[in-house]
Design a protein around this nucleic acid. Structure first.
Lengths: 229, 229
DNA sequence: TAGGATTTGTGCGTATGTATT
DNA sequence: TAATACATACGCACAAATCCT
């Protein structure tokens, strides 16, 4: 039979190869977005393959996906290079993310269960703790975790996928500009965002949560533009 | 030097390998969406590689992208299978496409040049000719071509990419249900849609074009639901 | 239940392209 | 300009998994 590898309730299958693919994908995506691999870094397929204990072939499958999502660019004879984010791309992505944030609370809204609420509260607590000791990397990580939680308020899977992809496409620009901004102020603003959205989610007003998120994406971009001028 | 392979005005590079990748990708995507490969079809990597005159390795790169977009599913020991579209997925994609259609006319609107207008007029003419001799496959092809033209009204590249991807994710369901619908009526409706959008584009009212598109996506889904009940 | 046929997944050597000396 | 070093792209053989007899 060999069906012990069935997973999840719906009977969906997940092969070991697919799990490994996901694991490596998330690992590399996080490294790119946390600037462990800053823009223009040249990655070595061979070194990465060795690190993960596989050959170049399955690794290249992961790199291909990251390239399709705009985080990498492979050029024969040169290498696999981490892409940079230019202001035009950033503006377009943010403009679209604003609209999608609004849709998060409108399309197939899912009333959060107790587990999801606990997640929001935990993130809020983390943000409060971060105020005392602001750290760019910890801030970036919390930001990523909070996005994942926020996606749970919609049952529209394509919307979740797209929102996640657009977020990771440009989020590393924040860590890149960390030296030119007031980290303490950014953390304080973000903590208020989480608090406001948590309040909306607690009373089940997901549409309000979407609007709050939209407003913060808008203001984030405005602050960011002032830095780059 | 070996720089004769530069293409496009912006100095953007396109290697031969990348062009071949794009060509095969579009070929296979069209075959899936035009039901040359109906849902549940098992594709052979070896046969496809031979057809395109390459080995399995670069072909698998294309299949990997089609799998990431939800059109294929590879299972070891079984094969590469064309996915089917279930009603839940269809509903979510259509709900999102309605919103994105509205955004097409709002985010970074691009006033069409004469070439683009000629494209719209040509498609309208094709739709009128199709009324006399309705054919499902020709209809599907025109539908695809019109989408590509419509995407030109926005300068927001992420929005264009996402709109295109969502369209191709579910459009084959129309051809699949062709036997149960009034093709002549569908062609007539579509021809009016093109005519209305053409009129809006001609006078530069791109926001109106987006709303017209949205309304037709909505009505299409309503008609489709009646077929599947 | 077992085994062979078939398919995708993987490892590795080679070809091809780029940058540098 | 030519040669060398080194990176990704490719082709092929084998491993692993599934299905059917």
């Amino acid at each position: 039979m060999a069906e012990e590898w069935r997973r999840e309730t719906g009977g969906r299958r997940t092969s070991a190869a697919r799990e490994r693919f996901e694991r490596i994908y998330h690992t590399l995506r996080d490294r790119i977005c946390l600037l462990d691999y800053p823009p223009d870094t040249r990655l070595s397929e061979e070194a990465l393959a060795e690190e993960f204990g596989i050959s170049r072939t399955p690794l290249r499958r992961v790199l291909g996906l990251l390239e399709a999502q705009g985080l990498l660019k492979s050029v024969q004879g040169v290498g696999t290079i981490v892409t940079d984010v230019d202001l035009d791309e950033l503006a377009q992505v943010y403009q679209l993310r604003m609209e999608l944030a609004e849709l998060l609370g409108k399309l197939s809204p899912v009333m959060p269960d107790e587990e999801t609420l606990a997640l929001f509260r935990a993130h809020h607590k983390r943000s409060l703790g971060l105020i005392d000791k602001p750290d760019p990397r910890t801030f970036a990580r919390l930001n990523m975790d909070f996005l994942q939680a926020l996606l749970l308020i919609t049952g529209n899977e394509p919307l979740r996928d797209i929102s996640e992809r657009l977020y990771f496409q440009t989020t590393r620009i924040w860590l890149k500009l960390t030296a030119h901004m007031d980290i303490a102020e950014e953390v304080a603003v973000f903590s208020r965002e989480i608090g406001d959205i948590l309040a909306a989610v607690e009373i089940g007003d997901l549409e309000a949560a979407g609007y709050i998120r939209r407003s913060h994406i808008s203001m984030s971009f405005t602050r960011l533009k002032k830095l780059t001028i």
